[in-house]
Structure formats: C-alpha cells, structure tokens
C-alpha cells in the first residue's frame, strides 16, 4: 500500500500540472480571440474533443471478449437512442449506465 507522504506528493503533482494546463493558456490565447483561425477552432473543437474522449473511454473494447463487448455495445446503442429520442442528458447517462450495469452484472457475468 502506498504511504501517505507519497500519495500527497502525487496528488500535488497532478494538481499542479492540471491547473497549469487550465490556467496558463488564458494569458497566451486571450490576444488571439479576434483571429478567424481561433474562431474556427473554437466552433470546430468541441464536437471533435467529445468524440475522441468517448472513443478513448472505449479503448479496451474487444469484440473477441463477448462478455464485455455485448454490454458495452448494447448500452451504447441504448444511450444514443434514448438521447436522440428524449434529448435529456441525465436520463441518457443514467439509463445507459443502468443498462450496462444490469447486463454486465447478470446476463454477461464472466
């Protein structure tokens, strides 16, 4: 088990790097706000970032491990369908997660 001193140092390291990445660009990017390139990146970036992060969370998806792949595929389809239908963020997330937990814990238990 890692000792407390090490854990505190590790948390401090992660906080320092994360906060720097979040705060420093405001100083560097602020003068660029009026540039058309920055305006383009600003409108194009969000959807791409979300798609990449969604795929990133699925990086261990493996169709050759059906007990894990089926719950993921079905819950993902359910989440997308419910979201296109009801357009309610919370409902889609909780519903999709509930379907995943139910399938992974019962039918597809490994």
């Amino acid at each position: 088990m890692p000792d407390t001193g090490y854990l505190i140092a590790a948390v401090a390291t992660a906080v320092a790097v994360t906060w720097a990445l979040r705060a420093l660009p405001f100083a560097a990017l602020a003068p660029l706000r009026s540039s058309p390139l920055v305006a383009y990146l600003n409108t194009a970036m969000p959807v791409g970032v979300m798609v990449i992060l969604a795929v990133y969370t699925l990086r261990s998806f493996n169709p050759h491990v059906p007990d894990r792949a089926w719950p993921t595929a079905l819950a993902l389809a359910f989440t997308v369908a419910v979201h296109l239908w009801r357009r309610n963020v919370l409902l889609s997330i909780l519903g999709g997660t509930a379907v995943h937990v139910a399938l992974a814990s019962t039918l597809f238990v490994h």
Partner: peptide, 10 residues
C-alpha cells in the same frame, strides 16, 4: 460506463 455515456451524449 457512465464516463462513456457522458462523452457520447455531449
């Protein structure tokens, strides 16, 4: 899976 659902919906 909540993390995946979150980013998919966003």
């Amino acid at each position: 899976f909540a993390v995946t659902a979150l980013f998919t919906v966003l």
